[in-house]
Design a protein around this nucleic acid. Structure first.
Lengths: 214, 214
DNA sequence: CGGGCGATTGAATCGCATCAAGCTATGTGG
DNA sequence: CCACATAGCTTGATGCGATTCAATCGCCCG
């Protein structure tokens, strides 16, 4: 679904930098965590909740480039300033890390730099897959693919609790919220999912995959 | 326009790896350089000509993720296998480097790893800007932006010699070749450019920028 | 000079956007 | 505890921009 950018934790980068205990912090729904163009002083790791990263196009058109879920690291666009704005999708708790010590460690320890490289590379692969959807996918393909990927990350057996609104999904997929809503209704008619309230869906993965590949 | 991914040369990574003198090689127009899924044994640097990297969606729909021009490095998607297919847009000369020694150097020398990280990060920024176009731009915005970026990379004063076909441009921008053609005609009517043969255009940058921002 | 591929242009169609009501949860104050 | 307000979602009607299908056109190369 999104650009996880996890892995630092698991691979122990943070464990190996004793000074880099993250500072816990919390953001309310829709609160800005950082803005595009601001100096990139911190890096963030989601503990609970969800975060959206997006770019804006002058007149307000918004493209969400990724959602960040618990375990994901975000805000580490290399460069002096943030290339995105990040906001809490729902009430969210994060750990905050200073960016400088991490970058300093990277200049001295090759394995740290390699892990950062690997992390950025993973984000790049997600971005390129997403480009394929945005450039070439129909509305149905985009929504079905989104739900399947969301299901893998959020769901257990098939029940998925979506933290984001229809507008967020639309801005992630390059559609309007009406089209997302209609498409989900259509998928339900086709037997590809069941809704229980707008945010709670149960996926029929096989059926969904059929519709995407057909 | 594309995902340059240059920088390794200028920053001397290759100079510092005496074993890594690139092997010259040449590809004819439309010849495949490597295919998606193949083992990623080599990295390539464009000497002359142009290269397209793309992904394919089952039924033949193609999304070009970037064009590579002289000086650009490509094929360095980290991971064991290539995530793209690469083909020569026109007759193209490249330098070929073995990937292994570079990665080995990265695991030992932090500054090498940092350069690779930086390179991937630059590609990621291009990909994310492109996502904004694909998700939210009109045909006119996409084509005008493409031409301006192509002009910066290929053109001197304003005369641009496009190495790729309308279909290539369309598959890069998520449009059809007819729409690209029509849009270029329309831009010419608007006084934003002059054509001298399909591949040769002279841009009026100020006028183009007006149309994109309006 | 002729063949052919790529580009342009035209006409009809379609998918998604836009505009516009309702609907349904959730939460708040009386 | 219920009425009401509100934000988010769904559904419907209509329009538009891009695609699709179909002819030419024109440039380049043999």
């Amino acid at each position: 679904m999104a650009a996880p950018a996890a892995g630092l934790h698991e691979t122990g980068l943070f464990a190996e930098c004793p000074d880099l205990i993250g500072t816990p912090s919390a953001f309310a729904r829709d609160e800005e965590i950082f803005g595009e163009g601001e100096e990139a002083e911190f890096v963030y790791k989601v503990v609970s909740g969800a975060v959206r990263s997006y770019k804006i196009l002058g007149d307000g058109r918004r493209q969400i480039t990724g959602f960040h879920l618990p375990g994901d690291l975000f805000g580490f666009d290399p460069g002096e300033s943030h290339g995105h704005t990040a906001e809490a999708v729902s009430d969210t708790r994060v750990l905050i890390f200073k960016r400088r010590p991490i970058e300093r460690a990277a200049t001295q320890r090759a394995e740290v730099a390699c892990q950062l490289w690997e992390m950025t590379a993973r984000t790049l692969r997600y971005a390129q897959d997403h480009m394929l959807m945005l450039g070439r996918g129909s509305a149905q393909e985009r929504v079905a693919t989104f739900l399947m990927k969301a299901g893998e990350r959020l769901g257990g057996a098939g029940a998925v609790e979506l933290p984001m609104t229809r507008r967020d999904i639309a801005d992630y997929l390059g559609l309007t919220l009406e089209t997302v809503s209609r498409t989900i209704s259509h998928l339900e008619e086709e037997g590809a999912l069941l809704r229980a309230g707008a945010r709670h869906v149960t996926l029929r993965r096989g059926r969904l995959r059929q519709l995407v590949e057909a």
